[in-house]
Design a protein around this nucleic acid. Sequence first.
DNA 1: GGACGGCTACTCGGATATCGCTTGTCCGAGTAAATGCGG
DNA 2: CCGCATTTACTCGGACAAGCGATATCCGAGTAGCCGTCC
Lengths: 161, 161
Amino acid sequence: MRMSEGVEWALHSCLLMAWQGDDPVSTAKIAAAFDLPSSYLNKQLQALAKAGLVSSTSGPRGGFRLARPPQQITLLDVVEAIEGPEDAFRCQEIRQQGAGASFPKAEFRERCAIAAAMRRAEAQWRQSLAAQTLADIQSTVDGKAPHAGPRMRNWLATAGA
Amino acid sequence: MRMSEGVEWALHSCLLMAWQGDDPVSTAKIAAAFDLPSSYLNKQLQALAKAGLVSSTSGPRGGFRLARPPQQITLLDVVEAIEGPEDAFRCQEIRQQGAGASFPKAEFRERCAIAAAMRRAEAQWRQSLAAQTLADIQSTVDGKAPHAGPRMRNWLATAGA
DNA sequence: GGACGGCTACTCGGATATCGCTTGTCCGAGTAAATGCGG
DNA sequence: CCGCATTTACTCGGACAAGCGATATCCGAGTAGCCGTCC
């Protein structure tokens, strides 16, 4: 089980946009800031746009910016925008195949106990992700490295010159 | 992010072995019970054996059986045996690439706040999985469908004749 | 009748192909700013 | 000098390939039970 690296890209991109406020940032700038392939990063940002997390602007001085304040964007929002809303564990109901096929169907009214247990675990995971917003991450970083945000903002301004 | 379907196979196989007690069950039997490709299922069971969750016996009347009582096998044990112990989210430290490469390295002594948040979420997931054992699943099933276990056991005995 | 040796069939175990999804790249449509011209 | 049409360059957006891991399959090594034979 491996999460797409696009999630890490999207999270860092969102954090960068949070620091940037309402100023749009182009895909090329973000790609340069983290040394990533810009075309593929664009794909991830498009996914964020489709999910309504960021808004896009075309043309010169265009780019992406957060569609909502950082307090209203959870990590779960970003992860689901990239990875999709489906559970990692997908119950295929194999208990009903083979031997189970010869048993009365009424037996399977109750949900598979294994799937239920896995679902509980994933619910914990989602809850933890939903409890943290971009603003929380910002606060954490500001607390430990207060100049990280402004400096990145400055780098973006000078690199574009 | 998608979990290997081998996890579902392994969990159901372990539950079947739990019902079967110390009686070894061959890969072919389990595959027939759930209508799965036996050769590939064998690969998953080998992974369980390598992790020390099940023990294997060769030759006629051979097969796999649980290496420990069901109370001592957690869902996390099974999941990690199949999927590996690594986190789903892998921090690539992209914050140190691009713009970050020109910043003093001392800046990055603190762990990436994003990676830390993702790690917390996964810890919750693992904790939930570790809190449930095969015996718990057995109890749940026995409570809702008391004859499921014995009937499966009977099916295995008659199908082999 | 009992014991022993060989045989057979069944099991795991790992090496070997195939497939789908993540990853990566490309080019076109659209837009806003910049520019040059005319008044 | 000011306003406007044209040009230009920059942006997103989606369509088109490549690489890698999960999936699926096969065959060989080893073992326990069975059978026939011999004592």
